[in-house]
Amino acid sequence: MHSGAIDPPGITWLRVSPKYVTVRLAGWALGNLLLLAVLALPLVFVQAGWWHWPPLWLAVAVPAGMLVLALWRLVLIPRQVRAIGYAERDDDLLIRRGIFFQRTLVVPYGRMQYVDIGAGPVERALGLCTLKLHTASAGTDAEIAGLPDEEGARLREQLSARGEARLAGL
């Protein structure tokens, strides 16, 4: 249970499903391995003698640096997932995320314009979904990923009901 320094005191955070790590891993693999493969192409060409530029050290250093970064991100993923949390208070919803770059967001129920639930292929296979709140501001990036399906549905109903009760204009 991670609780950062910027969180308001006295909040019990609800955590997302640990299975969400798998979703993040799939995303990581798709993005980073592809990028790594592309970056490794010059190395292959140089080794095969087709290219004379870049020099060998550069052809090695770029994918190696990328690999280190990718592995670093990989190590962080489980902790990042554990750092995601949300809490329903009487009048607003709190969402937190991040370890290094932390963010705690508060969205009043009365400000919600609509609620989205979406699920990608990996999420669907694991029975997870992503819930997204929209307010009148485009800056409100209120997304809770990795909710179990039934929890997502419960939260959506709960939020809609509370939003209805506390509806405010702009």
């Binding site: 910027i6 290094f100 963010r103 967001l105 307010t135 501001s137 800056g139 409100t140 209120a142 405010a168």
Partner: peptide, 28 residues
């Protein structure tokens, strides 16, 4: 009454100095 949502943000450097940024979200 015009505030849509509020976020508190803190990066590693800000944490070292014990400060945080507060962002208010309003319409575009």
């Amino acid at each position: 009454q015009r505030t849509q949502s509020i976020a508190l943000q803190q990066g590693p450097l800000a944490r070292r100095f014990g400060v945080a940024d507060l962002v208010l979200h309003t319409t575009a």
